[in-house]
Structure formats: structure tokens, C-alpha cells
Simulated assay, not measured.
Amino acid sequence: MEAFFRGYAYDPHRHDTYAFGLTLSGVQSFDYRGARRDSLGGHAIVLHPDEVHNGRSGIESGFRYRMLYVEPRLIRQAMGEGGRALPFMSTAVSQEPRLVAAIARALRDLDQPLDPLAVDDLLERLAQALLALDPSAARARPSRLENRALERARDYLDAHTAETVDSSRLEAMTGLDRFTLARQFRAAFGTSPYNYLVMRRLDRARRMLAEDTPLADLAFACGFADQSHFTRQFRRAYGVTPGRWRALQQQIRG
């Protein structure tokens, strides 16, 4: 995505993905891990999955930025044998040339479809740049994750986004107790099974918002208890209400 804001941008929220950003102009300010962060034009931003952050302009004239969201599993795959734990960059804002170049390259042509080989190249560059900034990830002992079981759980959640999924159902299909499953799921995919399910519901909801589906109908179709439940979850995930998100998308489409 690319966006421009003056003043307030986003309430505190979190993603279940990595967020790779590049500030194009102005000062992009946000709170992250207990401190204010300021990103100027040309600075890179990396937000780790499940880390709470907000957003606002650091100067009156506003800021423009681009952002790319990448599933943690893709970063793990691109790391290969060089890393086990997901790389973590606690500072969030960086001027490190390798990272800035990798993110700028990934965000270069937002309007153009990416060739599959280009996707692989971008992921590898991002993963290696992260590893260079977090050597501990490469040194971590191999984690004994039940990868096939975790993939089954994730595939099930993908296929049943609108349903209420009980932990016992996931236990039966994976052979893991619910606490081991939650711990290993977070290690593999950067978030808990519940948060993953909610985010998949919200993915579907965003597509339906773009089609101007009434919010009450949308909430029911995506598995939320009601419209207010949907609105709370949407704002918690993206920092804006569904109505404001729809208005921003309409502005972008012109």
C-alpha cells in the first residue's frame, strides 16, 4: 500500500505479518515497544508480527510512505538453514543500506504484478537483510517444530474462517495439545491460532468492504458475532474503523 497522512493516522494495532515500510517524505512517527520512533524520508521500517504500534505525522506537513506485508512463514522459508527463529529488529526504524535497498526494491512497482521468480528474489533479499541485523536468529538451535501438523492446522483455519473453531478440533487433527500447538504455531507463523483465524476473517472482510457490502451482512458472512464485534476487531488490527478504511480505499480508486 501507499498512503499520505497529516496528523493522526492509526490507533494502536498489530499485524500477524511482518510490515516492511519505506518513508517517502515527511516524518512518520509511531510508538513501538515503549518508545517513540521517527522515520524520515528514505528510512526503512520493519515491524515484527504481533507487536503493537500506532501511527501519526511527526510534522505538520504530513508524511507519505509505502508498506508491504509479508507472512512470517515466507520469511522462514527464505531463511533456509541459515536461521531458525524469526529475525527480530527491536528498533523498527533503520538506515542500514542493505535493508533499505531490499525494502525499496520490494516496494518499487506497487501497481505491477510480480513474477513468481521476482517474489522469490524479493523474499530472499528481505530475509537475508533481517538476518544480518539479528545474528541471534541464525545461531538459534533448530526448533523441533511439528511442521506437518502445524501446516494442517493452518490449512484448516484457512478453510473455515467463518466458523467457530474449537481447540479440541485442532488437537485431534494435529496430535498436539492446545498449549503446545499455540506455542509452536506462534514460532512457525508469528501469531497464535486464534489471531491467525481473526486475521483471515478480516482479509475476507476487506475484500467485501471494497465491494460495498453492508457492514452487518459482512460481519455475519465473515464469522463475527455482530457488526460491533467486527468493528472492534477491525480497528484493533488496522488502527482505523471499517468505514474509514472504505473511505480511504475509495479515495485511492479516485
Rank of each mutant, 00 (worst) to 15 (best):
E60C: 05
A153Y: 00
L218Q: 01
N147Y: 12
F220G: 11
G175F: 07
I75T: 03
R108Y: 08
L47V: 12
P142H: 09
R246E: 12
R246Y: 05
R56V: 02
A162E: 14
H53R: 13
E163I: 10
R236P: 01
D226C: 05
M67A: 12
L209M: 09
L131C: 04
R14K: 12
R200E: 10
D38K: 07
E71I: 07
V240T: 09
R36I: 07
L215S: 10
L181N: 00
D31T: 13
R73G: 13
L218F: 06
Q233K: 13
L117Y: 07
I45A: 05
G254C: 01
A210S: 15
R98N: 12
F5G: 03
V119Q: 10
L176G: 07
S90I: 11
S90N: 12
A172C: 11
T180D: 15
A118H: 11
I103D: 02
S228G: 09
L22A: 14
D115Y: 11
G55A: 12
L107A: 01
E71G: 09
M79I: 11
A138F: 03
H48A: 11
E171I: 14
A104R: 00
R66D: 00
A132F: 05
V100P: 05
R108K: 10
T191S: 14
G62D: 09
D120C: 06
L117P: 00
R244W: 02
R98K: 12
A172K: 15
G83R: 02
R200Q: 14
L114A: 14
R206H: 05
E171W: 09
L150N: 05
E81I: 11
H53I: 08
T191C: 15
F5Q: 04
R144G: 09
Y32D: 06
L176R: 09
Y196Q: 08
A219C: 08
V46M: 03
R169P: 03
F63K: 04
D111S: 13
D203M: 14
R66G: 11
R178S: 15
L157E: 06
A237D: 05
E151I: 14
V100Q: 08
G254E: 08
R232D: 13
A19R: 11
F224D: 00
T17G: 04
D38M: 07
Q112Y: 04
T180S: 15
L170R: 05
D177P: 07
A137F: 02
L197R: 13
S39H: 08
L117F: 08
M173R: 15
V93E: 01
R169D: 15
A188Q: 15
L176T: 08
S192G: 14
A102Q: 00
D177Y: 05
F30T: 01
R244G: 00
R246F: 04
V52M: 12
A247S: 15
R6L: 08
L150Q: 01
I103L: 06
P214Q: 06
W245K: 04
L202N: 05
A3N: 09
A9S: 15
L99A: 00
A101R: 11
L110Y: 02
M208L: 15
A237Q: 02
L133Y: 00
E124W: 03
L157M: 12
R232F: 10
A92P: 04
L86P: 02
A9M: 06
E146S: 13
S168L: 11
R186W: 03
